[in-house]
Design a binder for these strands. Structure first.
Lengths: 235, 235
DNA sequence: ACGAACACGTGATAC
DNA sequence: TGTATCACGTGTTCG
């Protein structure tokens, strides 16, 4: 407690470190400091710099170096943190003069986006399965007030599948926020991010599920009509 | 400069703020403070608290409130930054005891990932164009020492396209880090993230481009052989 | 002058 | 013990 401040004054006297101003003019009046320090350390030997050739380090010297190490370590820590912040500044759409706080706010937003998209990325990285699959996950997150959920359909590909799917969604007044469509080797998987409006209940989810099921059964009866251009709401 | 320290001692005397310890025991000996302060402020009126009913604020009081505001503002700033850091702690795979520096290091990694994936996401959100297209972007970023670049192929879909593409990449000893495949209405677009090994020059990029071109021409001659299962290196 | 943002040195604390 | 981190108050600079 008192020891550090005592050392602080000692350091100022030695001029070993820059602390804004030098010595007594920096705001810490060193008056009476020596007398009080002698009361703190009765076994005082070398208050006047030289301790006779690196002999037993006095309590003053040990604490002095400790304080010095502490100071430098703290500086290193600050530099480490700030270097990371600088890296983030280069990675994000912002100049090098943005605040730490605002920068971190933007970082939070970015990472949130990432959290949403990585799950979708993971789905995209796997190819459509060989087995027919339907899944309608009633959305846990109700963003912006309205219900948002995710529907997935994996089946044999056909050119009219997407238009039919679109018709279903339109008839249910469901809006497609995102559509990730992956087809390979004749198989197709659609992962749809769907938004319901206000007068939609959970019943609509079951409606959609049944509609998808019938769509999947219809998909096995091969009626290859002429290709139509896809029209999907895009966000 | 000197004024603040002077105020510091004044505050300590008033006991208005907690500063570790109270008064003279906190490391700043208040000896002789009043005498020196009077020399700093000759127009001193109200060193003893009450300044006669909110009258003209003395220089002491004004600087005192300034210091108080400063202190509180700095605290708010710290809290703002730390709250953002806490948010990041919840968003990232780490407990609430991870260092600021390590946390920020992880954040940097995450945001780097995001930077790579968002561009690909943007490509995925648009559907394959009606016109045939080839693009081989020689990678600007050489991460991990080896060259990484992006190839895109958009053409009419056919079941053997992907295996043929894979054969080309294998013959050129190119490794596919990522393959984003989108097909809709008979059109297909492949966006490939490709890694070259050490003994690859920029010549390989032109090789690949020519190979893709021939692949695209071959695609128009409709030879629908039996469907083969896709085998692509996945990261 | 005034607030906002920064780096710094320090005391406290955990391992 | 020494060696990390953290919060705090302060001095300083910039709009």
């Amino acid at each position: 407690m008192d020891q550090s401040s005592e050392l602080y004054r000692l350091l100022a006297q030695n001029g070993a470190f820059s602390l804004g101003g030098a010595g007594g003019s920096c705001g810490f009046p060193a008056t009476q400091s020596m007398s009080s320090s002698s009361s703190y350390y009765p076994l005082d030997k070398s208050t006047t710099a030289a301790a006779s050739e690196a002999a037993v380090p006095s309590a003053h010297d040990r604490a002095l170096t400790a304080l010095k190490n502490h100071k430098e370590a703290e500086k290193r820590r600050r530099e480490r943190i700030n270097s990371h912040l600088d890296k983030l500044r280069t990675l994000l759409p912002c100049n090098s003069k943005t605040d730490k706080a605002s920068l971190l706010a933007k970082v939070v937003e970015r990472v949130k986006e990432l959290k949403n998209e990585t799950s979708e990325i993971a789905e995209l990285e796997s190819f459509p399965s060989e087995t027919d699959e339907i899944s309608v996950l009633s959305g846990e997150q109700s963003e912006d007030g309205r219900l948002v959920f995710k529907a997935s359909l994996c089946c044999e590909d056909r050119s009219d599948l997407i238009p039919d799917l679109n018709d279903i969604l339109n008839s249910l007044q469901l809006k497609t926020l995102r559509a990730d469509i992956v087809t390979v080797g004749g198989r197709i998987r659609n992962v749809l991010l769907i938004a319901a409006n206000d007068h939609h209940s959970l019943e609509s989810v079951h409606f959609l599920q049944n509609a998808l099921k019938s769509l999947l059964e219809r998909s096995n009866s091969s009626l290859t009509s002429k290709r139509r251009r896809l029209v999907l709401h895009h966000k």
